[in-house]
């Protein structure tokens, strides 16, 4: 089979992308277990990336081919590959949403708004496929009988939609970072830099490198997220003690003073209690398991009334599940060291 260099290189790029993503899916405990909602969304992103590679490979394999049905295959494959790209961006937006708000309900509340641009783009592509097949002209792109691809005005609309998704996720992360003082383990650069580089290479050269950019982005995103998972207690899904020293150093580095801590002590049903804490906690608070049935909820400085109301909410949820607990809380003073504050909190429980 005589394959030209641009086709071969693009195929290698797709193969490399599949190797990266498949390796991630097979090797990563986080993705393989799929116990957490974010790992399920990550898994969907990986599957989407592999499907994208398949269609991009078909696109490139159809270059310079001349047989009956080649145009039809090219049109369908190009439509499908573009749809996988926008689907990927929608999944990425949901992923960022979950990583920031940590709530399925939040995603469900916004999924309709998030999905509207996808439906618009899918509609455009389906109309484009129809007009290409019936009238031999396109609104997004067109492929003539010699399989020469040409962009149409609608193409820029679809790209604007895709850029809007990328900008929306960046805005979501930046806004959250500004609002909260807690460390955020999801970072923009590990994912966006390879994605943008892959897109730039695809635009300026004959090589299609979108999927390679996305695959590398997924790997880098996984790496940066796993840095955060070092601090997660797998049994109860909340942070472990190491997170407390990390957050202490983080606050010192950023010059953050003050804060609120609530300590809880339970004897049994630790998993259920942990779930309740994570459900009831405010968005800017973190739950840490200290061992020996003790949990601590840390957040920025709050009013006493807010803390008491929160404890009341937790008490109500625990009564429904017949869980008994003891609790105490404290507000960190400006000059108080994080270690001294923690000791003060734990002493209050005795």
């Amino acid at each position: 089979m005589n394959i030209s260099s641009d086709v071969l290189t693009t195929l290698y790029a797709q193969g490399t992308a599949v190797a990266f993503v498949l390796g991630l899916m097979l090797l990563s405990v986080y993705i393989r277990k799929r116990e957490r909602p974010d790992s399920k969304i990550f898994f969907v992103m990986c599957v989407d990336c592999i499907i994208m590679c398949v269609f991009l490979s078909i696109n490139v394999l159809m270059r310079y081919r001349d047989f009956p049905g080649a145009r039809l295959i090219t049109l369908i494959s190009m439509t499908a590959s573009e749809l996988t790209i926008v689907m990927f961006l929608l999944t990425w937006l949901n992923f960022v949403d979950y990583m920031i708000y940590g709530s399925n309900d939040h995603i469900l509340r916004h999924i309709k708004a998030y999905s509207v641009p996808v439906f618009v783009e899918a509609g455009l592509y389906l109309i484009n496929l129809f007009t290409n097949l019936v009238f031999k002209f396109g609104i997004v792109f067109t492929v003539n009988d010699d399989l020469i691809y040409r962009r149409c005005p609608g193409f820029f609309v679809t790209k604007l939609i895709e850029i809007a998704y990328a900008v929306a996720t960046i805005a979501m992360i930046v806004r959250f970072r500004k609002r909260t003082k807690a460390p955020v383990f999801i970072k923009i650069s590990p994912f966006m830099i390879p994605l943008v580089l892959g897109s730039v290479v695809s635009i300026v050269s004959d090589y299609s490198a979108h999927s390679l950019g996305i695959a590398v982005g997924l790997i880098m995103l996984h790496f940066s997220m796993m840095d955060g998972f070092c601090y997660v207690d797998e049994r109860y899904g909340c942070y472990n003690r190491a997170y407390l020293s990390y957050v202490g150093n983080f606050a010192k580095k950023k010059g953050i003073s003050g804060g609120t801590g609530i300590v809880f002590e339970v004897e049994d049903k630790l998993k259920e209690f942990s779930d309740i804490l994570r459900d009831e906690k405010p968005a800017n608070a973190d739950v840490v398991y200290m061992g020996d049935g003790r949990f601590i909820m840390i957040s920025g400085t709050q009013r006493k009334s807010s803390v008491e109301m929160l404890i009341e909410l937790i008490t109500e949820a625990c009564e429904e599940n017949s869980i008994r607990f003891r609790s105490t809380y404290g507000i960190r003073e400006k000059d108080e060291a994080s270690k001294a504050f923690l000791e003060r909190l734990l002493a209050g429980l005795k």
């Binding site: 990266f20 090797l27 990563s28 986080y30 996984h222 790496f223 998972f229 070092c230 797998e234």
Partner: peptide, 18 residues
């Protein structure tokens, strides 16, 4: 090396960093 690092992170997933 990416595969190796994923394996490494699996380990970090279970062990506590002090």
């Amino acid at each position: 090396v990416a595969y190796m690092h994923i394996g490494e992170m699996n380990q970090a997933f279970f062990e506590e960093v002090r």
